[in-house]
Amino acid sequence: SEFSSRSGYGEYVQQTLQPGMRVRMLDDYEEISAGDEGEFRQSNNGIPPVQVFWQSTGRTYWVHWHMLEILGP
């Protein structure tokens, strides 16, 4: 990996993601499973900070930056 740390990767995702971009989950996290795909909606200063609309659940759920792989527009 070109990223030395999880936080470095998270910063990359945070700087790159734009609303509407497709993402894939890298880790299991509460209701969301690794491999689930969705659409980035928004972020804020909460914890976790990233709101994604997940195809698997049909609704939005908040996750962490480093848990997401960017699939593209």
Score class of each variant (00 low, 15 high):
residue 1 S to P: 03
residue 1 S to L: 11
residue 2 E to G: 12
residue 3 F to Q: 06
residue 4 S to N: 15
residue 4 S to A: 12
residue 4 S to Q: 08
residue 4 S to G: 12
residue 6 R to S: 12
residue 7 S to G: 13
residue 7 S to D: 04
residue 8 G to I: 11
residue 9 Y to P: 02
residue 10 G to R: 08
residue 11 E to P: 09
residue 11 E to W: 11
residue 13 V to P: 01
residue 13 V to E: 00
residue 13 V to Y: 01
residue 15 Q to R: 13
residue 16 T to Q: 09
residue 17 L to V: 05
residue 17 L to N: 05
residue 17 L to Y: 03
residue 18 Q to F: 04
residue 18 Q to Y: 08
residue 19 P to L: 11
residue 19 P to A: 07
residue 20 G to T: 03
residue 20 G to P: 09
residue 20 G to Q: 02
residue 20 G to Y: 04
residue 21 M to F: 15
residue 21 M to V: 04
residue 21 M to W: 07
residue 21 M to R: 00
residue 23 V to G: 04
residue 24 R to C: 02
residue 25 M to K: 04
residue 26 L to S: 01
residue 27 D to P: 01
residue 27 D to Q: 13
residue 28 D to F: 05
residue 28 D to N: 09
residue 29 Y to G: 04
residue 29 Y to F: 10
residue 29 Y to M: 08
residue 31 E to T: 08
residue 31 E to Q: 14
residue 32 I to Y: 03
residue 34 A to I: 08
residue 34 A to R: 13
residue 36 D to A: 08
residue 36 D to R: 02
residue 37 E to M: 04
residue 37 E to L: 11
residue 37 E to H: 08
residue 37 E to Q: 10
residue 40 F to K: 11
residue 40 F to D: 00
residue 41 R to M: 14
residue 41 R to L: 13
residue 42 Q to I: 11
residue 43 S to T: 05
residue 43 S to P: 00
residue 44 N to G: 15
residue 44 N to C: 07
residue 44 N to L: 04
residue 44 N to S: 15
residue 45 N to A: 13
residue 45 N to W: 04
residue 45 N to F: 07
residue 45 N to C: 13
residue 46 G to E: 14
residue 47 I to F: 11
residue 48 P to E: 04
residue 49 P to I: 01
residue 50 V to A: 13
residue 52 V to E: 07
residue 52 V to Q: 06
residue 53 F to I: 13
residue 53 F to M: 06
residue 53 F to K: 09
residue 54 W to S: 01
residue 54 W to R: 02
residue 54 W to D: 00
residue 55 Q to G: 08
residue 57 T to L: 13
residue 57 T to W: 01
residue 57 T to Y: 14
residue 59 R to D: 13
residue 59 R to W: 01
residue 60 T to R: 02
residue 61 Y to R: 14
residue 61 Y to E: 14
residue 61 Y to F: 09
residue 62 W to G: 15
residue 62 W to T: 03
residue 63 V to L: 01
residue 64 H to D: 05
residue 65 W to G: 03
residue 65 W to E: 12
residue 66 H to Y: 09
residue 66 H to I: 05
residue 66 H to R: 05
residue 67 M to H: 15
residue 67 M to S: 13
residue 68 L to N: 01
residue 69 E to T: 06
residue 69 E to A: 07
residue 71 L to C: 02
residue 71 L to R: 01
residue 73 P to S: 06
residue 73 P to F: 04
residue 73 P to N: 08
residue 73 P to C: 07
